[in-house]
Simulated scan of single mutants.
Amino acid sequence: MGAPLRKLSGDPECKNGTCPTLWGTDNGKDFVVQGYVITDPQRLAQLDLPEGETAVVVPAAVLEEYFSARR
């Protein structure tokens, strides 16, 4: 099991605690993004994802919160 993740920011509109979130890893160089899985075949085709990768949609507010805090 890997090192624990640190919650860096989350969706401010979240009411249940399981919303899109940006997590930091122990090395400080990588991020884990929790979001809504893209299932639309047209969008997935545009991304041309390789085996083992997926894509998620994250509200802009999650990233804005993180980058605002870093200033």
Rank of each mutant, 00 (worst) to 15 (best):
G35S: 07
V56I: 07
T39I: 00
R70E: 07
A55T: 02
N27G: 15
I38V: 09
E64C: 04
G35L: 06
E13A: 11
P12G: 15
C19S: 14
P41H: 00
T25F: 05
T25K: 04
R70F: 02
L5W: 10
E13C: 09
P20A: 02
P4L: 08
P4W: 13
L49K: 03
Y36E: 14
L8E: 08
P12R: 11
C19G: 14
D48V: 05
C14E: 00
Q46P: 10
Q42D: 06
A61Y: 05
P4Q: 09
L47M: 07
E64D: 13
V33I: 10
G28N: 04
D48W: 05
T25V: 07
F31C: 11
D30F: 03
G52L: 01
V56C: 09
T25S: 10
N27R: 14
L63C: 09
R71T: 08
T25N: 14
L63V: 12
V32N: 15
L44D: 00
S9G: 09
E53Y: 04
E53S: 03
D40T: 11
R43Y: 01
D26G: 01
L8C: 11
A45I: 06
Q34L: 13
L22A: 07
V58I: 11
N27Q: 13
V62A: 05
K7Q: 15
T39Y: 04
K15D: 02
L63H: 06
A3C: 10
E13S: 11
R71Y: 00
A60K: 12
A55P: 03
T18Y: 10
V62L: 07
E51G: 02
D26F: 01
P41E: 01
D48H: 09
C19R: 03
V33M: 03
V56D: 13
P59W: 03
T21I: 08
Y66G: 06
Y66D: 08
L49Q: 02
P12S: 15
T39C: 04
E51I: 04
V62I: 08
G2E: 15
R6S: 14
K15Y: 00
V62N: 03
T54F: 08
E51L: 03
F67G: 05
T25L: 10
F67I: 13
V62H: 11
